[in-house]
Design a protein around this nucleic acid. Structure first.
Length: 506
RNA sequence: GCCCCCAUCGUCUAGGGGUUAGGACACAGGAUUUUCGAUCCUGCAGCAGGGGUUCGAAUCCCCUUGGGGGUGCCA
């Protein structure tokens, strides 16, 4: 059996697209699963689209996601360099070979001439707007011109490209791992440029050459590449190489079915209707858990299968459960709601001490680190199930570290009635006498006071919650009071009793 | 235009000749006489349309429709 070697081959054109990350993930999972090698190759052959720092961006995101390449620009490897821009002589050599074999030719057509051809101004082009077998004889290339003419243009330094001479009557067939048999008629395919006039290769040449040289066993990439498969297949054939297995992944779209575009988005919290941010780093910045993002995109086009309803996966679980055979064919829509839910679920799975360590910088920043770890851990345990994001800790949990400075307006109106002050004061007097300030004892006191006054527990519970936390929602009241401690509770209630009736006058 | 791909609840999907078409998110309702942004329970909601094949089709075939990709000296 052939060793599994897969590559993630992004073009460094700026930000990291959510779809790119999924492609990287699927490649990574496949590699890990087959004890294979995961390779990062930077496809930076378009100098006009070069973006400073884009590669570093890419590497940083992969690193953050835990999708570390086994071979790549950073870690090196036996098949480097892993930047295509550093491999131009290799591509030129193979392009030359193709020319010598008669599978490729030189073309001198200017952009304007190509434009004219596509606009159908040339007689022949009424048949086709492609640069193909029907039209190449009427263009300015080494197939249509005499050797002398070509020599002359070359000597004059005329800019030219190398084109693949696509056969006229052929059917190319691929057995795609996700799509099954797909056929392409070579007549529909143009004479692809392999080498641009600046000497750099196009994707097609570089891709085929590198995949072969780097001994890639499986090409797992987005569906946008499916149409170029016949060109690639023909190249493999010309070189006499065995093509790798191929798998074309379904695309990921906006909720409205449009392409996810960075242009649509300014802010993750104010998304235009039907749009979603394609930039992975926006989600990182918003505080989404790495596991949640990977989990969410893993499920976009893949599922564990019949009889398996698991939704929440760690990266390790993805590795053991994933299979390329279970990747589906239809495009998926990115669902922010599900990401949010997964984020919560992933947060719930984390041990409290792990979260505490992640929270430390924020605790220090706020001076909340005066509290002992045991206290912080207890707060985390109380809050954990309610956190949408880890950073919610600093808003939902403020009152565990600071006295409330304001009280929720709606709760204030809803829960603080005329007789509340008396009930609350009586409750304070009673708990003040407690020697053991634990949830059970506190509850006992509260129930007693409520019974004495013939009111439901809620009549006291809600006002107390409001008084000590300022919020109307939160963890169970008695655990909360226990953790806060008697002194703090008594102090806060005393203050609330002073402040709240006054607030209500307003 | 041409080529290619795709089509099950709003969304992600299971199911691939006989199922009350299953699950998850979201949404709605209920429970928790202690809140909800927690938890549990229930509900809502789907095989794009039309033809075939078959005793029987969501499932196989064809057409239509819809969506998407490609058609670049972009990747």
């Amino acid at each position: 059996m052939v060793a599994v070697r897969v590559r993630f081959a992004p073009s460094p054109t700026g930000f990291v697209h959510i779809g790119s990350l999924r492609t990287a993930l699927y490649n990574f999972l496949f590699a890990r699963q087959h004890q294979g090698t995961f390779i990062l190759r930077i496809e930076d052959t378009d100098r006009t689209r070069f973006v400073e720092g884009a590669t570093e961006n890419m590497i940083r995101v992969l690193d953050w996601a835990g999708l570390m390449p086994d071979e790549g620009p950073q870690q090196g490897g036996p098949f480097g360099p892993y930047f295509q821009s550093e491999r131009t002589e290799i591509y030129q050599r193979f392009a030359q070979q193709l020319i010598e074999q008669g599978h490729a030719y030189l073309a001198f057509d200017s952009p304007a001439e190509l434009e004219e051809m596509r606009n159908g101004k040339l007689a022949v082009s009424r048949i086709s707007t492609r640069y193909n077998h029907q039209i190449r004889q009427s263009m300015r290339n080494s197939l249509a011109m005499s050797a002398a003419e070509v020599e002359q243009l070359l000597a004059a330094g005329e800019p030219h490209v190398v084109r693949l001479k696509m056969p006229a009557e052929r059917v190319f067939n691929v057995d795609d791992l996700v799509r099954g048999q797909v056929n392409f008629d070579s007549r529909e395919i143009d004479d692809q440029i392999l080498l641009k006039s600046d000497g750099y290769p196009t994707y097609h040449l570089a891709n085929v050459v590198d995949d072969h040289l780097m001994q890639i066993s499986h090409v797992i990439r987005g569906e946008e590449w499916l149409s170029s498969v016949p060109k690639h297949l023909f190249l493999y054939e010309c070189f006499g190489w065995t093509p790798p297995k191929m798998a074309h992944l379904p695309l990921i779209f906006n909720p409205d079915g449009s392409k996810m575009s960075k242009r649509d988005i300014t802010n993750l919290s104010e998304l235009p209707a039907g749009k979603v941010d394609p930039d992975v780093e926006s989600y990182i910045r918003a505080g989404f858990e790495c596991d949640a993002i990977l989990n969410a995109i893993a499920l976009l086009g893949w599922n564990p299968g019949e009889g398996d309803d698991q939704q929440v996966f760690s990266l390790a679980e993805l590795i053991s459960n994933y299979s390329l055979e279970r990747v589906n064919k239809s495009a998926a829509i990115f669902d922010l709601q599900k990401l949010r839910w997964l984020n919560k679920e992933q947060l719930k799975k984390q041990p409290a001490d792990v979260l505490l360590n992640r929270l430390r910088p924020g605790l220090e920043e706020r001076g909340w680190n005066r509290k002992p770890d045991s206290y912080c851990l207890a707060v985390i345990e109380l809050l954990q199930a309610r956190l949408g994001f880890l950073h919610d800790f600093f808003t939902y949990g403020t009152y565990f570290f600071e006295d409330p400075t304001e009280y929720d307006d709606k709760a204030l109106k809803k829960y603080w009635k005329a007789q509340t002050t008396n009930l609350v004061l009586e409750f304070v007097r009673e708990i003040d006498k407690l020697d053991r300030f634990f949830a059970a004892e506190i509850e006992e006191v509260l129930r007693r006071v409520a019974e004495r006054h013939q009111v439901g527990g809620g009549q006291i519970i809600h006002p107390i919650r409001l008084a000590v936390s300022g919020f109307s929602v939160g963890p169970g009241l008695f655990e909360l009071l226990e953790l806060l401690g008697k002194d703090t509770v008594v102090k806060r209630i005393a203050k609330a009793v002073e402040v709240i009736p006054a607030l209500q006058q307003q």
